[in-house]
Design a protein around this nucleic acid. Structure first.
Length: 528
RNA sequence: GUCCCGGUAGCUCAGCAGGAUAGAGCACUUGAUUCCUAAUCAAGAGGUCAUGAGUUCGAAUCUCGUCCGGGACACCA
């Protein structure tokens, strides 16, 4: 809708301008401050310029009114235009708010170590990533979602060791000297029990079996993580194993070497990341020949760029921010355009329960499981809370307050609006087909405002995705629901002379809510 | 010490490619059910937009400094 309007105005003004929302809807549906920027050029007051522009603006059927106010040029859309668009949308539910972008995007997110279940911090990146994926696809982008599995390195050994020791303690009933670093938490004991059943308890007798337990434990954890994700409606297109890429190290290394971006010192191989914005050079191969984590990421990004997407988006935890510079440096050194990689950092999540702060630490086993929170407040509320705040602010919320299934829970409020529309249709005994071709004319101001707010979904979706600001969609849905509730309270629908018109507007509101929620991974409810 | 994110109503947060009178939800006060679900709505109260300066027609928004909070600064992943 906005695009059409933009083009139409541009056609008339014949110059660049900014199209925005007026402060108040009563001014108009859209507005432009273009007169302010013209003031200098024409050496006239913006107020005068706006008046002249408004006067000379050639009307078409799209606009009911074009007026000037305090230097702004305001546009009011006509009933006929809104009606035409609504009729089309209701008849083409599947196409509504879609777009035809064609860029390909590789979206990597979660990528949590397969050494334990997902905790609440992972959930934020997971939900945001999944939603961007849904939004992108809706807008026509070719989005592939990917999970990078860190299945090599010390943490996998530690997982095996932890299971091994837990087996000695809980199955073999031996006294165990726990090292400084190991994975705590009940799930390790559960894994030991499971291992004792899958293999047998002898596996805990020989240290040589730690490696077997590492590999087995990693697979079990991946499976568990997959279930955790599925429980909040997330499925990945690809899982890429760090270990499986190690064979390609020589290939990536040769590229770096050819560009003279590595060197040897103290028996180690370093990458010249300080040449490209990093604080200092980094070790990629240790003196004992083992690759570092960064080496793994270099191979992985080489692999990503070989697959040739137009854009790469990584969603990382905020604790990875120092890592961006070195990965971008490596990408550049490999001969690729590092600007095609965009990193979104998801800030910390602090969880409260009854006002008491929780502290999370994966190592200690003292973290809050995502699945526990899902059990408490449900997947929809969890998704909504993460989607209602922008990614780069620290988020604090109290589990207890989200447990409530009442008006303090915004997802409830939105669903109620959707259910309300459904309810009214039932009461009226009419179906969508009965009213979708009704002509919307002579609408009251409030009816027109409601319809207009419902029709904003496409531009909100577009804006939400391109800005990667997921909270814009949820904010919009709350305000749309609010508009519906308000209208409902002020106007009788069933049995009124405007029944059919109002039903059509309500159907449009419901369609926008349903579509918006779906993009957030939430199913709209028809009954509360 | 360096880097990243933040500081807006009592609380949780929007707004920030400069623009019209700074918003929402929660909490608080008051009111609205003979009538489509009151799981809702309306009204009220609540602000030196951390702070100082700069940029200009115009700053919560951009620039610089200061203060406060959180995080990161591995040959761990």
């Amino acid at each position: 809708m906005k695009k059409k309007i933009f083009d139409s105005i541009k056609n008339e003004l014949k110059r660049e301008f900014v199209l925005e929302k007026p402060k108040e809807l009563s001014f108009g549906h859209y507005a432009t401050p273009v007169a302010f920027s013209l003031a200098k050029e024409f050496r006239k007051s913006p107020i005068k310029i706006a008046e002249e522009l408004a006067e000379n603006f050639e009307k078409n059927s799209m606009f009911e009114e074009v007026n000037a106010l305090k230097g702004y040029l305001n546009f009011k859309l006509s009933d006929a235009f809104l009606d035409e668009y609504t009729t089309w949308a209701l008849a083409h539910e599947d196409e509504y708010s879609k777009d035809d972008n064609s860029e390909s995007i590789l979206l990597e997110f979660v990528s949590a170590n397969p050494t334990g279940p997902l905790h609440i911090g992972h959930a934020r990146g997971a939900v945001i990533g999944d939603t961007l994926c849904r939004l992108g696809r809706h807008l026509g982008y070719k989005v592939d979602s990917e999970y990078y599995v860190n299945d090599a390195g010390n943490q996998i050994y530690l997982l095996g060791l932890s299971i091994f020791l837990a087996g000695q303690e809980h199955i073999l009933k031996q006294k165990v000297d726990w090292p400084d670093e190991y994975y705590r938490g009940e799930y390790i004991v559960d894994l030991a029990k499971r291992a004792s059943a899958d293999f047998n308890e002898d596996i805990f007798k020989d240290k040589k079996n730690i490696e077997i337990l590492s590999d087995w434990g990693k697979d079990m954890m991946l499976q568990l993580i997959g279930e955790n994700l599925k429980d909040v409606g997330i499925e990945f297109d690809n899982f890429v194993s760090e270990k499986s890429l190690y064979g390609k190290w020589n290939e990536s290394f040769e590229k770096l070497q050819k560009n003279d971006k590595t060197y040897e010192k103290d028996g180690k191989i370093w990458i010249r990341s300080s040449d490209f914005g990093d604080e200092k050079d980094r070790v990629v191969v240790r003196d004992d020949g083992r690759a570092t984590y960064l080496a793994g990421d270099i191979i992985y990004h080489d692999n990503k760029y070989q697959r040739d997407y137009d854009k790469y988006i990584n969603i990382w935890g905020a604790d990875h921010h120092g890592y961006i510079a070195r990965v971008k440096a490596a990408i550049n050194f490999l001969g690729y355009d590092e600007k095609r990689l965009e990193v979104i950092l998801a800030q910390m999540v602090s969880l409260l329960k009854g006002g008491e702060p929780y502290k999370m630490s994966k190592r200690s086993g003292n973290f809050i499981l995502m699945s526990d929170v899902v059990d408490e407040i449900g997947k929809d509320a969890l998704r909504f809370i993460f989607l209602s705040k922008k990614a780069d602010t620290h988020l604090e919320f109290d589990v207890d307050s989200l447990k409530k299934q009442d008006s303090t829970n915004p997802i409830f409020y939105i669903n109620y609006a959707h259910a309300r529309v459904n309810q009214i249709f039932e009461k009226s005994g009419k179906k969508l087909d009965d009213i979708k071709d009704i002509k919307l004319d002579n609408l009251s101001q409030s009816a027109k405002n409601l319809l207009f707010s419902a029709l904003l979904l496409p531009e909100v979706v577009e804006d939400t995705f391109t800005s990667r600001q997921v909270q814009r969609l949820s904010d919009y849905l709350v305000s749309l629901a609010s508009n519906l509730h308000k209208f409902y309270n002020e106007n009788r629908v069933v049995g009124s002379e405007n029944e059919d018109k109002y039903l059509k507007i309500f159907a449009m509101v419901a369609l926008s809510i349903k579509t918006g929620l779906k993009l957030m991974g939430i199913e709209a409810k028809n009954k509360m």
